[in-house]
């Protein structure tokens, strides 16, 4: 925003007078505030450095690195077995077995095209606090920390698609551990500008200062390429509780929080098919997240 403020060529912040409200607006019963006739959403409100970096540099590089050359359209997939033909005297009175088998890890990636270059769709953070089982007020510190780190709050900016910070409740009953409906953690999904700003903070402030952090571990070379995680295009890792103190939003008043919280981070990309997770890792390494083979 500094560029916006500093350029004095033409003001863009004079909006004129507020229009008079002529139509009757319904009022919120609780707050007595008028309800606007259209949902008001806030979208991107400042230029985003990492998003620009993606479009100027990373997208091109990711396309070149992950490009697989194919000439012409792909052949039709091989039929899994001969189709059942009841007029054929051989199959006529035989059992027609259902087609089975796990197809998940066998799907090839979509053809390399400019519109499906790997890109970041959302970042999902979540954290479980075991002491929330004894008292749910123990979650307040975690919620405040997530709000500070991500800049999101409940229905922030009138948005309903992204719910801001959400409570996670138990689903199952496991003796001595969890009960259904009990709040045990918090999560938040970040998209767009908030997502890139979080990534920016993470790679500029947190990861370089994190002790004994060499990089996000890669699976061994021998691990399966057809597993669900390898073909889903999601890269996940965790941050230890010590990392929370390194976020500048929390560093300023660290002693206001009852304790430090770790979190799981999932980077969800649009990559699908065989090798999707590797393409997602290539994208993230373009954003300077280091990876390390142990």
């Amino acid at each position: 925003m500094s560029a916006v403020a500093s350029s004095t060529t033409r003001s863009v912040v004079r909006f004129g007078r507020t229009p008079r409200i002529t139509r009757h607006l319904r009022k919120n019963k609780r707050t007595q505030l008028p309800i606007p006739q259209v949902p008001i959403l806030t979208r991107q409100f400042a230029p985003c450095r990492f998003e620009d970096h993606y479009h100027t540099t990373v997208a091109d590089d990711a396309m070149y690195m992950t490009y697989i050359h194919e000439s012409g359209p792909r052949p039709q997939p091989r039929p899994i077995r001969l189709t059942y033909d009841p007029s054929d005297p051989y199959t006529k009175n035989r059992y027609n077995p259902p087609v089975g088998g796990q197809q998940l890890g066998k799907k090839p990636p979509p053809p390399s095209r400019p519109d499906n270059v790997v890109r970041l769709e959302k970042i999902s953070l979540h954290s479980m606090q075991k002491d929330a089982l004894s008292s749910k007020s123990n979650l307040l510190g975690l919620i405040m920390a997530l709000r500070a780190v991500t800049g999101e709050s409940y229905k922030a900016g009138g948005r309903h698609t992204a719910e801001g910070i959400e409570l996670v409740r138990g689903k199952k009953s496991v003796g001595g551990w969890i009960r259904p409906g009990v709040p045990v953690g918090a999560k938040v999904d970040l998209k767009g500008q908030a997502m890139y700003d979080f990534l920016d903070t993470l790679v500029e402030f947190v990861l370089p200062r994190l002790r004994d952090f060499q990089g996000v571990g890669l699976p061994p070379q021998s691990s399966s390429v057809n597993s669900t995680s390898a073909v889903s295009g999601v890269v996940s890792f965790g941050l230890p509780p010590q990392a929370m103190a390194l976020f500048p939003q929390i560093e300023v008043n660290l002693d206001a929080y009852p304790k430090q919280y770790g979190m799981h981070i999932h980077f969800v990309t649009n990559a699908t098919g065989v090798g999707a997770q590797n393409r997602a890792r290539a994208l993230l390494s373009g954003f300077q997240i280091p990876f390390l083979r142990k």
């Binding site: 697989i68 000439s71 090839p108 393409r279 290539a282 083979r293």
Partner: peptide, 21 residues
């Protein structure tokens, strides 16, 4: 680092692409 990442991404099932001219 990213080069290391990609070497493993080249492992893909044979057949689909190699058959093309």
């Amino acid at each position: 680092l990213s080069r290391n990442v990609l070497t493993s991404s080249r492992r893909r099932p044979h057949g689909a692409v190699q058959t093309f001219l």
